[in-house]
Design a protein around this nucleic acid. Sequence first.
DNA 1: ATTCCTGTTGCAAACGTTTGCAGGATGATT
DNA 2: AATCATCCTGCAAACGTTTGCAACAGGAAT
Lengths: 347, 347
Amino acid sequence: MAASEEQEARIQVRTITDLARLAGVSPGTVSRALAGKSLVNTKTREKIEALAREHGFRPNQMASGLRRQKTGVIGVVIPLGHDIRQQISDSFFMTLLGFLADELTTHGYDLMLRRVVPDDDADWLDRFIGSGMIDGVIVIGQSDQFDRIEEVADGYRSMVVWGNHQEGQRHCVVGTDNRLGGRLAAERLIAGGARKLAFLGDTGPMEFAARFAGAQDVAARMGLPSVLPLVTHLSPDRASEEIAKHLAAHFTAQGRDIDGIFAATDTLAALCLTELRAQGLAVPDDVKLIGFDDLPIARQTIPPLTTVRQDIAAGARGLVDLLLRRLGGETTESLVLPPELVVRETA
Amino acid sequence: MAASEEQEARIQVRTITDLARLAGVSPGTVSRALAGKSLVNTKTREKIEALAREHGFRPNQMASGLRRQKTGVIGVVIPLGHDIRQQISDSFFMTLLGFLADELTTHGYDLMLRRVVPDDDADWLDRFIGSGMIDGVIVIGQSDQFDRIEEVADGYRSMVVWGNHQEGQRHCVVGTDNRLGGRLAAERLIAGGARKLAFLGDTGPMEFAARFAGAQDVAARMGLPSVLPLVTHLSPDRASEEIAKHLAAHFTAQGRDIDGIFAATDTLAALCLTELRAQGLAVPDDVKLIGFDDLPIARQTIPPLTTVRQDIAAGARGLVDLLLRRLGGETTESLVLPPELVVRETA
DNA sequence: ATTCCTGTTGCAAACGTTTGCAGGATGATT
DNA sequence: AATCATCCTGCAAACGTTTGCAACAGGAAT
């Protein structure tokens, strides 16, 4: 008796069938017991649960997923546009990803992360969706793939995108009102006395384009010259020297073209601050500077950075909430979050 | 004819069987064709591939995974110890994660991310491994789970861990030589004239304990008083005030207990720098300060931070390389990476 | 004794792929 | 014409779960 029990314990129990044999019931019953269905006798269930615990048995998720046609996994995809190296280390996206992981876990979903380079692989989104591995997908950042995403959205409901909202778009998006954010920034710069504004960053990506446009709105409304775009890459290594060049070009012995800079992200703003200091320009006295995101770094620069805050946690909650509702069959509207001006000392 | 073709195109082709019907062959042949096996006639293959492209067909990964007993997915798990809120936004882990995503993608694997709170769920690692969803697992950070990881390693080969290496441990680990890093830091502080050293951070996690121990080694060898631990949480919000308190306690009107601070991470070092400045202490003249990691922020503080560099990209490469070799059946040794002192202006 | 619940279980067919094996062509060699 | 090797393809059995349906036991109601 003891011998046979020992032998039983030694037996590898990998499948529900193994466990069923041990418990002296059919596989179906084990499945129902483990799933907590009410149709199974309490004593049987307890016995099965005990055996499962004892042998450390876990049902195979692949098989379960195949049979039930759902996986309990949400795909999170980061499309990398032109500026490959940047995005992955981008603090903003990474922070968002962290919150997403939290939020999905809370709702019992796993997270499958995929980075794609759309240029190399036109099929990036379909491939992910069609793989059968995920119940739904969250796209982080529209990059330059707005049209592709729109197309896919027409035939696939279980998708939510982080990004910028455009009038009449068909895919469900969650994001900050970037244009309003741009307006807030420009207004603050101007209120501080700035008249010659510049926008630092890449105006290609939609979010940034909207921030730029917001600043333009204000400049136009106030009758100021239009905002000067200072184009840079986003990766810190390349951006530094690009910023230095821009500054050298616009702050010369003959004069200063710029007295207010709106940076597309806090990361760029921080770099810009360093460069301004290196070129002997005082912030905010000579130039006013304002960032975007309110990442932790904004509090640590010297002087601390005035910036436009995005509520990343709320964004993550929104993304997950909307996606789950879509999985449940609801039709959902996009969610536009309000930006908030955080006044510190650079503007 | 045209009508029937149109009808064909409209038909949803979800399964390999659908495609087989369209192509007029058996499912087996389609499977082989799509897998690129040599046993299938070139013309047949081309026809099948064309049809697959046309209908946007992708084989179901769940079914494939189930049948082949491998999924093409690597699990990445971040165990969160005491300090929950911190880790997920921790720049270091996030950067590592980014590189891991790159590296795994390059090798044709997908990445399944899971955050766990071991305190709530003693079973965290077995559950992930036993789910059948992943071919192998990378654990980012040992947290306080060293023993649990050791146990699991005895029965499961497809695991590699980022963390600290200990003499005689059984699990395969990749990580920086933290103790050596600690020594480098302390030596630099002392070479600059510091005699009363402090370690800023949590000495609980193994990596940090090793850094602390390294600093101790040097202090002892030089006959200096032992290194004073200044315990803080790692999340920026809590850490700031904790640091302020520590500083207030050790830099009083009566005198200064400390003239060299070794911070467990750059993030803490940057916060510390801010607090030192707030309390009117000059770096490096009054106090020398040195960080760990060489995150981007280290270059942007004022003055820029002297720190001990970890090669994160190499770490990610090592993790993936070792894991894949283990999947292939090899037995692998742990990989200990050398830290590198980066001298800037704070020490 | 018969009928009819109610609660619990077993049976077997899915889910969509992959793959060992056998078999059918085709052409080359005897 | 017979034999054989070479290619290619089809058949059917897996992979491990879930779940509709049928069946069975036991008890209550007729």
